[in-house]
Design a protein around this nucleic acid. Structure first.
Lengths: 407, 407
DNA sequence: ATTATTTTGTTGCGAATAAGAACAAAATAG
DNA sequence: CTATTTTGTTCTTATTCGCAACAAAATAAT
C-alpha cells in the first residue's frame, strides 16, 4: 500500500487578510477532497461496517478514488479496516468502520443545579461520565470541569470539548450573555476559558440547540432522516427551543436569540410575563402552569408535580382534565410554530412527555383542520440526556461537519 | 488570448442512478471551478465595473486564476471587458461588467386581477413590460403569457422564465396547490406548462417568497447586505410572508407551506378565521381589519381605504387613532415573528407602508422591552413590483446561484 | 527625456484531485 | 479445475489552483 501523506490543508477555511472585504470560502483542488472526504466519512458513520465498493456505489465516486479517500481517513485515525466474511461470490470486501478510539471528546451539560461531564469516542457513545453541583461562579465551574476531565480521561487524549448552557450564549464567540439565576456567568467567555483550562478547542451552545442536534444524530442512526425540525423543551418555568433547518442550526442573526417561542404572545389579555409582556406562551404551558391547571393556587413542587403526572398517566380523571387544559395551550403554540416554519417534525422534551399518550390527540387537534403535515413527537431521550448528547455531537461536528464552499 | 473551451459540465448537479439511496453532491475538480466562477460572477455583479486584480484582491484567488475564470465567463456571454481609464500609476486595468444583453429572462407576476409580464437582462433591469387581466383558466393564462412573450422579446432569445403566484405552490415541481378565488388553477403544473408553451426552462414560486428574494437583491445592490430576513405582505384580506435564511429561501419541509404567519393565533378568544381557527393574526392586521378599526361595520372599498390612509398620513386624528390600533396588532405579530426567528430585518410590504411614519413607533414598541434587535422597515418598492422583480431574480438565479457541494 | 517603480494581466510549471481503464486478488459457480 | 464475479489497486489523463516569472503600460523620480 503506497504510503501517502494525509492530504488537506488547503484554504478551505477561507482566506482572510489585510484589506477590506474579503469574501467567502473560495475553492481549491483540495476543497474537492475535503467535500468528498466528508461525504465518505459520514456514510461510514451511518452505514458501518461498509466496503469501499458500497461507498462507491452510493456516492458515484469511483472505487479507485474511494480508496484514496479511505486511505486518507485511515491515516487520520478516523476509520479502521476489518476483514469481512465472504458473502456471495467475488473478492471478500474489507469492511470499514469508525475508529471508536480515534478521537475523544468531552461533552458537558450544565444545568442550573447540576453539571454533567461525559467522555465519548468517535461514535458518540458515552464511555465515562460524572457530575457535580453547579457552582455559582463560572471560574469554579471551569476548574471542576477540568478536574472531572482528569478523572475521566484515563490516559486518552481529548481533542475537542463542547458545553451545553441553559441560557443565552453567543455561540460563535463563546460568550455567555445570560443564564437564569446565575448572574455571575453573564459576560464570561465560556468557550475560551474552557479552551484555556483544558488545552483543547472548545465550543458552547444553548441547551435546546444542542437538543435539536442530538435529535438529528439519533434520528440518523435509525435511518429516519429529518432535515428540518424544531426541538422544544417544556421546562419548569419556561419553554426553550432549537431550530434545525437543512441539517443546520439556525441561531438568529445575532447568533443567540432565535427560537424564543416561549415568548410568542398567544393571548394579549393574558397575565404578565417576567419579560414584561403579556400572555407569552410559556405562561400557559410550562410545568408551573400545568400544575396550576391541576391544583390552582397551590405551591409548585417537583415531587408533587411528578405525582400529578403519574396520576394523569394512570388515568385519574381530575389529572386528565387538567392535562387536557395544558394540552390545548400546547397545541396552540405548537401549531403557531408549525404555521411559521412548517418543519417536518416538532420534537418535544420535558416532563410533559411522560404523559404524551394522554395529550397527543389534543395536541394534534390544531392541525386537524389545516393543510399542515407536521409530526409532533416526544424526544428520543429525557431532556438532560439530549443536551449532553448534543454537546458531544457539537464536539464531534468538528470531525463530521461538511465543509463550506462557495459564498 | 488563448482560446479555451467553456469549462464545466462535471457532475456538480449530483449523481443519481439505478440503485438505492444515492447521496448528495459529490465534488470533482470542475466543481472547484463552478464554485469559484460563481463567486467571481457575483462579485462582478455587485461591484461592476471591476478589474481582475481587484477580484483577486477580494477573493484571495490568484490573478492568473481569476483571468482563467473570467475567460470562461466571457465565453459564456455573461461578462464583457471595457478598457478603463488609468488611475494612479501602473498598467491600466481592464474593467469587467455583466453583459447586459447576454441572457434574457421573462418574469411574470400573476395577481388575482391582473398579470404582468416583463423582460429583463442579466442585470435585472426591466426593459419591456406588459400586462393583461388574469384569466380564470390557467390554460388561457399560459397562452396569454406566450403572446406577451412574443410581443416583448423583439428577436431576443429568452433563456429562462419565472412566475410569481399569489397562493400555494410546490416550487420544486411547479405544481399549483391553491390560489384564492381561482379554483381552476389547483393541480395545474404551472412550471411545466410554461416550459412547454415557451420552450424555455421555467420556475415558479409563491409571491412573498419572491418578494423576499427581490428585497435581497435590491439590498445587495446598495451594499446593505442582509442574509436572514422575513418579508411580510399585509394584504387586503390576509398576510403573506417569505423567509430568507442564510441567503436562501426557506419553504418548509413540504416546499410549500412555510411562513404562514398570518395564521398564527394571537388571541384564542378572537373571531373565527376562514381557516376554521380562532384569532389568527391576519384577522387583526389585514386591510379589511384596518378599515374596520377606522369605520366599524362599514363596507370595505379600496378607494375609501386609500382615502383613510391619506387622511392618516396627513394627520387626521380619527384616522391616526385607528391606525394606532392596527399598529398595535401589527406589533404583536411582528414581535412574535422576531422571537421565533430573530431575523436581522423584517421587511413589510402592502398598503399600510404608505403610513409607515405614523405606525413605525408603535410597531417598534413591542421590541423596546426586549433584547431583540430586529429592524422593521418598509419594502424598497410597492408590493406588486417586488413580486415581479422577485420573479426576474428567480429566473436569473439559474445563472447566479451558488453551486451545491457536499451533502 | 530617460530610467525606475508600480500595477495589471499572461504564461508556464508543479501539485492535488477525480475519472476511467486495466489489472490483480479472492471468492463462488459450473 | 476453469470461468465468472466482485473488490480493491495501479496507472494514465484531464481539470484546476497556486505560484513564480515575465510582459505591458501607466506614473514618479531623476
Amino acid at each position: 500500500m503506497a504510503s501517502k501523506k494525509v492530504s488537506g490543508k488547503g484554504n478551505s477555511s477561507g482566506l482572510r487578510a489585510n484589506a477590506a472585504v474579503r469574501i467567502s470560502h473560495t475553492a481549491t483542488p483540495s476543497s474537492v477532497r475535503d467535500a468528498n472526504r466528508s461525504i465518505i466519512l459520514n456514510l461510514i458513520r451511518l452505514h458501518q461496517p461498509i466496503s469501499r465498493a458500497a461507498l462507491s456505489e452510493r456516492t458515484g465516486i469511483y472505487r479507485s478514488n474511494v480508496s484514496g479517500i479511505v486511505e486518507d481517513l485511515v491515516a487520520r485515525d478516523l476509520v479502521v479496516e476489518k476483514r469481512g466474511k465472504p458473502e456471495g461470490r467475488g473478492r471478500v470486501p474489507i469492511f470499514l468502520s469508525l475508529k471508536a478510539d480515534g478521537f475523544w471528546v468531552l461533552g458537558i451539560n450544565m444545568r442550573a443545579q447540576r453539571t454533567t461531564v461525559a467522555l465519548a469516542g468517535l461514535t458518540g457513545e458515552l464511555c465515562a461520565q460524572t457530575d457535580f453541583d453547579t457552582p455559582s461562579e463560572p471560574g469554579v465551574l471551569i476548574s471542576e470541569v477540568a478536574a472531572a476531565a482528569r478523572r475521566l480521561n484515563g490516559g486518552r487524549e481529548i481533542q475537542q470539548v463542547a458545553m451545553s448552557l441553559p441560557g443565552l450564549v453567543h455561540s460563535d464567540s463563546g460568550l455567555v450573555r445570560w443564564i437564569p439565576k446565575l448572574p455571575a456567568y453573564s459576560g464570561f467567555n465560556m468557550a475560551s476559558e474552557l479552551q484555556k483550562a483544558l488545552g483543547v478547542p472548545a465550543a458552547v451552545d444553548n441547551d435546546c440547540n444542542l437538543g435539536a442536534l442530538a435529535e438529528m444524530w439519533l434520528s440518523e442512526a435509525e435511518n429516519d432522516h429529518i432535515r428540518d425540525f424544531v426541538f422544544l423543551e417544556i421546562g419548569e418555568v419556561g419553554v426553550g427551543a432549537g431550530i434545525l433547518l437543512n441539517r443546520e442550526l439556525y441561531r438568529g442573526h445575532d447568533c443567540t436569540l432565535a427560537a424564543e417561542f416561549g415568548h410568542m404572545i398567544v393571548d394579549p389579555n393574558g397575565p404578565q410575563c417576567a419579560c414584561g409582556r403579556h400572555g407569552c406562551w410559556e405562561l400557559f404551558v410550562c410545568d408551573h402552569a400545568a400544575w396550576n391547571n391541576y391544583a390552582p393556587g397551590s405551591h409548585f413542587n417537583p415531587a408533587r408535580y411528578e405525582r400529578y403526572l403519574k396520576a394523569a398517566a394512570a388515568g385519574d380523571l381530575d389529572a386528565r382534565r387538567a392535562a387536557q387544559r395544558t394540552a390545548r395551550y400546547l397545541s396552540l403554540g405548537i401549531s403557531n410554530i408549525a404555521f411559521a416554519l412548517n418543519p417536518a417534525v416538532i420534537v418535544v422534551a420535558g416532563k410533559v412527555t411522560s404523559i404524551w399518550d394522554a395529550v397527543r390527540t389534543t395536541v394534534e387537534e390544531a392541525f386537524a383542520s389545516t393543510k399542515l403535515k407536521v409530526y409532533v413527537r416526544p424526544a428520543k431521550l429525557e431532556a438532560g440526556e439530549m443536551f449532553l448528547r448534543g454537546a458531544i455531537h457539537l464536539a464531534l461536528s468538528k470531525v463530521f461537519a461538511r465543509p463550506k464552499l462557495g459564498w
